[in-house]
Amino acid sequence: MRIVIAEDAAVIRDGLSLLLTTRGHQVAAAVGDATALCAAVAEYGPDVAVVDVRMPPTHTDEGLRAAIRLRRDHPGLGVLVFSQHIETRYAAQLLAEGSHGVGYLLKDRVSEVGDFLNTLVRIAAGETVLDPEVVTQIMGASRRTEALRTLTARERAVLAMMAEGRSNSAIATALSLSYGSVEKHVTQIFTKLGLPPSQSDHRRVLAVLRYLES
């Protein structure tokens, strides 16, 4: 994959570059602010951009705004937005522009390099990936507590992973279940919550999120 990194902390920028190059990816550019990011994407046409939310000059959300702009201007570009803490609002703004090839993760997640690289590949392939923390926050704030209470603990765990954008086989591996029983749980959840069944993973994310947020 060809990757552009935008991150203002040099240690993380260099660490990411090193990680991605040693794992056989090509880091086209590693920059420190949003303006340089947009220029680099226009110049190199990467598969994925990894973007920190908080960058100079204001250190608030310029990375997020740049990410939204990039997604609009470069359809097909995967964008992974990185943040030191999770704001569900940011996730909502990112997904408002469509859910193809987008991810929103806590910065801490790079400390599991295997999972992180996996996530990057999924985003490049057009999937949607949300940090478990986003899902926890949305589920905690959801007004659908009555309906959620009818789910079993196992079903809730599966629902959380669906909202993160995991596929059935990934959920099966993570929860040590058979593929078939995950399918059964998913069907159960959709029936209990009255959601229209959906096969595609990232459509499923949106359905679940919309349900939780409504």
Binding site: D8, A9, I12, D14, G15, L18, L19, T22, E112, G114
Partner: peptide
Amino acid sequence: DGTQARLVALAMSLSM
């Protein structure tokens, strides 16, 4: 900018 970034980098190196 300092401590958190450095810890992330450290955790990343350890994971590698």
